[in-house]
Amino acid sequence: MTATTTPPVRQRVLPMLVMAVCTVYFLVPIWWLFVGASKSSEQFTSTAPLWFADFHLIGNIGDLLAYRDGLFLRWLLNSLLYTGGAALLGTVLAAMCGYALAKYRFRGRELLFNVVLSGVLVPATALALPLFLIFSKVDATNTFWSVFLPSLVNPFGVYLARIYATASVPDDLLEAARIDGSGEIRTFFTVSTRLMLPALVTIFLFHFVAVWNNFLLPLIMLSDERLFPVTLGLYTWNTQVNQIPELRGLVIVGALLSITPLVIAFLLLQRFWRNGLGAGAVK
């Protein structure tokens, strides 16, 4: 750590003010969600939206979990499988790919890298319909795999992994491992991944968020509600509010519960993320 110089007070006020405004701007919806989720449906419309009325959060959660035999829990579990599973496996794939691009010389390496990199520019939304048509050909729409398999791909992760592997895994170390008789795969998993860990956490988080937010793919692929991720499930309920107004309360409580895993993941892993981003940047 180098010594940091503290700027004069006046120069600190403005940034702090901007940050404070931003913080309020980002936190108010979450606060609203929390307050809203704690109200009974009657008080929801008739009391001030940003402050508590009678505290019904526990009862509301109970209602949500009981509704339609705990369908919501199933959605949460699905989300965890789609998102956690795809992020974990996708990170491993991206790491291996990026590592190979960084550490091995072979013909067409740059071409391959550029092709992968151009994939970053293609939004996941644009691929949903072609993927649906492809999965239709093999009769695999409306299955777990139709959402899981496309979610494994993460070109940005490959890019990050390559940059980071170049910077943090010294060639000499790999040479030493080879001389000691370690195979390439073993070296990768026992030596290189440890050195790349901060980057892997970053990739994992990015991937996690990307899959979590990829709403269109499950919307197009799935029609069995027992396969829905929580985002699609809540959206479906929300479109039925006209017919079943009681659903509005469930959607709000559900939204609160569904962001909780994300918040926890971020709070636990943000330290790694910061490191990873910083390390990537100085390279």
Binding site: N142, L219, I220, L222, S223, D224, E225, L232, Y235, T236, N238, T239, Q240, N242
Partner: peptide, 14 residues
Amino acid sequence: VQTGPNGNGGTYQN
């Protein structure tokens, strides 16, 4: 039974 959002919410497009 298969389900999804209401018609204009996505099911018609599906």
